[in-house]
Amino acid sequence: MRTLTLAAALAVAAGAAAAQDVVRMGTEGAYPPYNFINDQGEVDGFEVELGNELCARAQLTCQWVTNEWDSIIPNLVSGNYDTIMAGMSITDERDEVIDFTQDYIPPTPSSYVGLSADVDVTSGTIAVQTSTLQASHVAETGATLLEFATQDETIAAVQNGEADAVFADTDFLTPIVDASGGELSFIGDPVPLGGGIGMGVRESDTELKQKFNDAITSMKEDGSLNALLTKWFGDKEQGY
């Protein structure tokens, strides 16, 4: 009967522990400033900086994985990565399929944007990203819902006249409107939606969820989460 030497056994155990400490962080990589691909071709943004800090506090190693939005939950459930950090609002519907940590962004408003501030968003054609909280909202307003796989396509639909307005997170739309040189305008008042943004995990990963909850709590308590929110989104009335 062959046996491992003590040194070999320790090496195997250390390797197994290291493997368990690697957490694959799923994100879209197409939703600035939450997450995006930077000029160096690397995943970047508020959630990437936050996620790396959360992993450090939880003594975990992050590996970032990008995935298209419309299949981001199914691929978490099937095991292609271990978490979702992708500007995902916590909703009852999603919570039936996956679990969420506590929020790391408080509930934030969504807004309509169009080529004119006078668009009637209750009767027009509204572009939204598919499988979002905003898509569900528009479907209930009586407006014509026009869904796209990416947020970039929703903006293009407004600019080329395919849609009368786009409906998305205000934080996402604000820099786009500012950079449009007056081409795009906000329409009406912001609309509060959702229960904040959290990290999605599989329902079976209770220990992982607790580790990230503890890390998020520590960042709320020491003020570092508010500092990151200010860095990426500017001064905000909402914070922790």
Rank of each mutant, 00 (worst) to 15 (best):
L50A: 06
G51F: 10
G51D: 03
E53Y: 04
A56H: 12
R57K: 13
R57L: 10
A58Y: 07
Q59M: 13
L60K: 15
C62K: 00
Q63K: 14
N67H: 08
E68H: 13
W69D: 02
D70V: 14
D70R: 13
D70K: 12
D70H: 13
D70Q: 12
S71G: 06
I72N: 13
I73Y: 05
P74S: 07
N75Y: 15
N75W: 14
L76Q: 12
S78M: 13
S78I: 02
G79F: 06
Y81N: 07
T83W: 02
I84M: 09
A86D: 11
G87W: 04
G87C: 13
M88S: 02
M88K: 04
M88L: 14
S89H: 12
I90F: 03
I90V: 15
T91H: 08
E93Q: 15
R94W: 06
R94V: 10
R94I: 08
E96M: 14
E96N: 15
V97N: 05
V97R: 09
I98C: 10
D99K: 09
F100Y: 13
Q102C: 01
Q102D: 13
D103H: 10
D103G: 01
I105A: 02
I105E: 02
P107V: 04
P107W: 01
T108M: 13
T108A: 10
S110G: 03
S111E: 00
S111A: 04
S111N: 00
L115W: 02
A117H: 14
A117V: 06
A117E: 15
D118L: 10
D118I: 07
D120C: 03
V121M: 04
V121I: 14
V121S: 05
V121K: 03
T122A: 13
S123C: 01
G124A: 11
T125V: 14
I126N: 04
I126R: 10
V128T: 15
V128W: 08
Q129P: 03
T130S: 11
T130V: 08
T130Q: 11
S131K: 12
S131E: 11
S131P: 01
Q134R: 08
A135S: 11
S136D: 11
H137Y: 15
A139K: 07
E140K: 00
T141C: 00
G142S: 01
T144Q: 08
L146A: 09
F148E: 08
F148N: 02
F148I: 01
